[in-house]
Design a protein around this nucleic acid. Structure first.
Lengths: 143, 143
DNA sequence: GTCGTTGCAAAAGTTTTGCACGTTA
DNA sequence: TAACGTGCAAAACTTTTGCAACGAC
């Protein structure tokens, strides 16, 4: 909690009761809650908090690297005619997606914790980064 | 195209101009278009097609295994307090997500096609399957 | 002719935003 | 007190659904 105040100070954002409660709630969560679920839980302590504040707070925390957001390709589904096992790399700049074939990954056996968990049906790797075109663009903008 | 008629016949769905055009368009696509983008392209050939038909058609094709849908965890974002590198397995039954630590994957170097592509910043593996609780439930329902 | 499919419109669900007010630093 | 952050309400956006008309088999 002192840690949290410190992170806020370092990043120039204010410590509000809303941010503090969302922080405490999400840090104790092991079940990957949705924004709606976080809202439900935080409201027990802070009944007047609004859902859009929860969204704004989660976005802020994600930007500060305090939490990770699970979502694959931005906000909408994309469709792929290739149904063979393969993977994807997406550019955070231009949002373009490239197929990857990666036999080493396909061949890997599951870690023990997953064997106990149940039956795995599919495996998909998503890489994020910056494509060479966008890298060039960023370099030329830096002039 | 004859292939497509055959798949439809085998699965008991009708061959409509809409389905045919969506099929032709998506099979030629290498850029992982969104539903909206597929709609835009198909409309060039079939100006009267509606967006909801495109959605329905894409869903149907996905169910038949003709295409793959890229989307991570169902429809909404989920948040994870764990920002160390790790991966996830999600149960298609109960939608619960479990963290996975998988050093073998983390240590793998990128395939050559990715080295050329640009700079990769993050790597995330998503497994889908059925957790043991849901497996038991399915078995008991099968009685 | 039957029944699955489409188009339209409206709804549903998640996430974002404009704005006036309140709170933090 | 000067920004920043919040709550409210409404909007934006993607995706789904009810229904009458239509078209494939």
């Amino acid at each position: 909690m002192e840690q949290f105040r410190k992170v806020c100070r370092e990043n120039g954002i204010k410590v509000t009761p809303q941010r503090l409660e969302v922080f405490l709630e999400i840090l104790g969560a092991t079940d990957h809650p949705s924004a709606e679920e976080v809202f439900r839980r935080v409201r027990r302590k802070l009944p007047m908090i609004s859902l859009d504040t929860v969204y704004r707070t989660l976005t802020t925390f994600d930007e500060l690297g305090l939490i990770a957001t699970l979502r694959s390709l931005e906000d909408r589904s994309r469709f792929d005619p290739n149904t063979r096992e393969h993977h994807h790399v997406v550019c955070t700049g231009c949002k373009r997606v490239m197929d990857i074939f990666w036999p080493e990954i396909d061949a890997l056996s599951m870690p023990p914790q997953v064997e106990d968990w149940g039956r795995v049906e599919t495996k998909h790797v998503l890489l994020r980064g910056t494509c060479s075109t966008c890298l060039l663009k960023i370099e030329s903008e830096a002039d």
